[in-house]
Amino acid sequence: MNNHSSDTDGRGMPAIGVLDLQGGISEHIDHLERLGIRSVRVKEEEDFQNLAGLIVPGGESSCISRLLRLFNLDEIIVQQFQKGMKIWGTCAGAILLAKTVINESAHLGLIDIEIERNSFGSQLDSFQYEAVIPGLLKKPASLTFIRAPKIIKVGRDVNVLLQIDDYIAAAESSDVLVTVFHPELTGCLAFHHYFAKKCNLKPRDVDGTEVLDPTWRLTSWTRLARISRG
């Protein structure tokens, strides 16, 4: 997959960044690589150069939010967003992007949704749910909800992508995508494909049959977190 020709590390190529403060970073990078998208771990100001999009991963929103503020990365994200960088938040990431968070103050506030943190209960209430999303997820795929938040309502400029019972599980505005579940924890590449196109990048084509990458395993993320051989 690594292209060692003239553009050795592809640094000139627009990339999708994954905010690398805490949480499921390797899992997103694994999915982006499967689609042939250049990915960058983002934790310093200079990492934001040439980013077409940014993924704010799942983890604990209170932890990620603290670290964002500590190093003024929140301001940099908002600046880059205003310059056209698209953003996708999964789970904790969706909480960080919401304009309204029930019982706490908003963090980045980049999409007009109201969200409730840890809305299902404890880990014993985590679950998988099979869904289809017209235009995005053509075949039923299993979505993973881990201590997930619920989107309660969305503003006028926000489209609901997936409604389940009394809550919204996925939504988007022109520049922001939010999912309260974790596509990076399944073999489903459809959301990363969709986001890459939203960022005007060219992901490797996956048609209906390839939406679930058959080579994906529960442990696929570990190839990005092997022990050092030293």
């Binding site: 690398d20 403060l21 805490q22 949480g23 499921g24 970073i25 390797s26 899992e27 799942g58 983890g59 604990e60 932890c63 789970c91 904790a92 880990q123 985590s126 679950f127 998988q128 993973t144 881990i146 201590r147 974790h182 924890l185 529960l218 993320w221 977190a225």
Partner: peptide, 19 residues
């Protein structure tokens, strides 16, 4: 197996963090 998978994955979401 599905429940075990979800349990392993919750721990993955704690990566890089302090308990």
């Amino acid at each position: 197996a599905k429940r075990y998978e979800l349990n392993v994955q919750l721990a993955q979401m704690l990566k890089g963090g302090v308990i």
